[in-house]
Design a protein around this nucleic acid. Structure first.
Lengths: 232, 232
DNA sequence: CAAAAGTCAAATGTTAACAATCGACCGGGT
DNA sequence: ACCCGGTCGATTGTTAACATTTGACTTTTG
C-alpha cells in the first residue's frame, strides 16, 4: 500500500556503512595516482590516518588485493601494484570476455531506464571540451560500461566486472594523461554501441563491443609506448 | 650450482600457512554438502571448532563470500548459499565466457607438461567404474578444466575461474548424486577437447568448449528438475 | 676486506575483550 | 484475538594488546 513515507525509504542509510567505507577512499587514491604505483601501504599508518583501528583497514586491503590494486605478501604488507604491459594485456582480454557476455545479455534486457542512463552519459561526453580532467574521462567511460553490465542482469558478471573495473580505471587514468583525445573519440564510439545494443542484434552488438575494446587496448598501448619513449 | 640440499627446497613449507588454511576446509564442507545449503555459520562456533580465534575465521568467511559459497549480511552473519535455477544459469554463462577465453589462449600455449596432466586426468576418468563417489567425479571434472585454465597463462583469468569454480563444484556434486552417468560421458567429451586444443585450431576449440558447457548445463538442469519432481 | 652469522627493530598475524546492533520474546492496549 | 512497543539475549563489528616473522644492520671471522 502506498503511503506518504515512501519517498524516504532510500534516504535512510541502508547500512551505516561498515569499515568498507575506506575501500572507495583508498581505491580512488590509487586509481588517480595519489598513491603512486609501488607505494608501500602500512596498516597502522592508514589506520591512524583514517581514524580507526587496524582491523577494518586490514579487511579493506584484502578487498583491494582482490581487485588487483595492491599485492599482499606475508609479513611484508601491501604494496600498490606496478602495472606492466602484460597486466594490460590480461586486463583487456578478460574485460573483453566479460563485456561480450554483458552485451550479449543486455541486448534483450535493455529497459527504458537503462537507455536513459546511457543517453545521460553520452550527453556528458558530447559536452566535454578539450581541457577535460583525466578523472572525468575515466568516470564517464566506466559509467557507460557500468550501465551495460547492469543491464545484463547477471549478479556474478557484475561482481567480476567490479573487480576488473578498478584496474581498467588505473590504465585509463594513465592513458588520458598521456594522450588527451577522449573528447573526440568517446562520444561517437559509445553512441554507436548504444544504438546497436538498443537495436537488439546480438551478433552485431558482440562484434562491435569486441572491436571497441580491441581499439581501446590499441590506443592504450600506443599511449604507453609513447610515454615510455619520452620517459626513458 | 646443484647441491645436496636441492631436493628439499619444495619440502620446506613456503608459508607455514596463515589462517587461510581454514578456507579449503570450510569450502569442502560446503561443496560436499556436509554443511547443508542455508546453514547458518557462527564465527565463534567455527573458531572454537577449528581451534583458533575469530579473526582468521572472519577473513575466511569474507573469502568464501567472494567465491559465492556463503552470503554475508551485516550483523546477521554468514549463511551457506541456497542455489536456485537462476544461480545455475548465471554460473554456467559466466563459466562459458571464462573458459572460451581460456581455451582460446591455451591453444597456442599448451606445453608437453600440460598435455601430460590432461592425459593423466583422462586416464583416471577412463578407469572410473559405475559406482564412483560423487566427490571423485567432481574432482576429476574440475581438475581437467583447471589444467586448461592454467595453460592459458593468464593470472587474472585464473583468479576469476577459482572464484566460480567452487560454485560449479556445488552444482556438480548435486548433479552427480542425482544422475550417475559421469563414467559414460566424461572421458569421450573431455578427450575430444584435449585433442582439439592440442591440435591448435582456435575457432574449433572455442566452438567445442562452448558446446561442451552448454551440454553440461543441460544435463545439470535435467538432473535438477528431475530431483525437484521426486522431492516435491 | 669480504662474506657469513647474529642481533634487533619494524611490521604483520593472531588473540581476547569491549561495544553496537539485530531478531526474538513478552507484555499491554485496542 | 491482533497489533504495537519495550526489553533481553545472542551475534557480529571494532578495538587494543600480544606473538611471530621479516629484512636490515652490526659484528665477527677467514
Amino acid at each position: 500500500m502506498p503511503g506518504p513515507l515512501d519517498h524516504l525509504t532510500i534516504a535512510t542509510q541502508p547500512s551505516p556503512a561498515l569499515s568498507a567505507t575506506v575501500v572507495p577512499a583508498i581505491r580512488q587514491m590509487i586509481t588517480t595516482g595519489a598513491l603512486p604505483q609501488g607505494a608501500h601501504l602500512r596498516e597502522a599508518e592508514l589506520a591512524t590516518a583514517l581514524g580507526m583501528s587496524r582491523g577494518p583497514v586490514r579487511e579493506a586491503l584484502v578487498e583491494l588485493a582482490r581487485e588487483g590494486l595492491v599485492v599482499l605478501r606475508r609479513h611484508r604488507g601491501a604494496q600498490v601494484i606496478t602495472l606492466t604491459s602484460e597486466d594490460a594485456e590480461e586486463v583487456y582480454t578478460l574485460r573483453r570476455a566479460l563485456e561480450r557476455l554483458a552485451v550479449e545479455r543486455a541486448c534483450g534486457r535493455l529497459t527504458a531506464e537503462h537507455l536513459a542512463e546511457l543517453d545521460a552519459v553520452l550527453d556528458r561526453m558530447l559536452r566535454l571540451d578539450a581541457d577535460y580532467a583525466p578523472e572525468v574521462a575515466v568516470d564517464l567511460d566506466l559509467a557507460f560500461h557500468d550501465v551495460l553490465v547492469r543491464a545484463a542482469a547477471h549478479s556474478r558478471l557484475e561482481r567480476s566486472w567490479q573487480q576488473t573495473r578498478s584496474q581498467v580505471a588505473m590504465f585509463l587514468h594513465d592513458r588520458h594523461q598521456a594522450r588527451r583525445d577522449f573528447h573526440e573519440i568517446a562520444h561517437p564510439e559509445h553512441s554507436a554501441i548504444r544504438d546497436i545494443v538498443a537495436g537488439g542484434d546480438v551478433d552485431a552488438a558482440v562484434a562491435f563491443i569486441d572491436k571497441h575494446l580491441v581499439g581501446a587496448y590499441d590506443r592504450l598501448r600506443a599511449a604507453r609506448t609513447e610515454a615510455a619513449a619520452t620517459d626513458g
